[in-house]
Design a protein around this nucleic acid. Sequence first.
DNA 1: GCCAACGTTGGC
DNA 2: GCCAACGTTGGC
Length: 153
Amino acid sequence: MGYWLMKSEPDVFGIDDLERVGVEPWEGVRNYQARNMMRDEMKKGDLAFFYHSNTTVPGIVGVLRIHREGYPDDAAFDPDHNYYDPKSDPDNPRWYRVDVAFEEKFSEVLPLSWLKQQPELSDSPLVRKGNRLSILPVTEAQWRFIMEHAHRR
DNA sequence: GCCAACGTTGGC
DNA sequence: GCCAACGTTGGC
């Protein structure tokens, strides 16, 4: 089973939105590395941390589950859509998305500032400077470490 | 709002 | 294929 971390701006789509709707297409990813992970590596049932970026306290706020594996991101074909990309062709889609399902909201945010202080997480790209990837792999050890702390609070 | 880091674009 | 210019991300 794979473990991931997926970033979203809570002003656009946050953990509370996911809890309300239950299942949501994770659209709008326009980065090739992140695209490759969604298209090729994410499997149904994989778990991912939900990370809030661009907010007062950036950090991990909960857990989601991969509900549907990678399929073309239709938003790229719609000229009226924010995520429109004229270079993506329905016959040869450039961008992919997965569907995610709400799993759990933590009682408190695990702030990035705290994550950065944990030696167990020092190898994660999340805490490395200048990381801008919106989807990151998480190791099983890192997953367990973070989950323990989330449930201890 | 600033700005560092980084990815993408496009001219050559 | 190089690389400067540009746009975006995202922490602070």
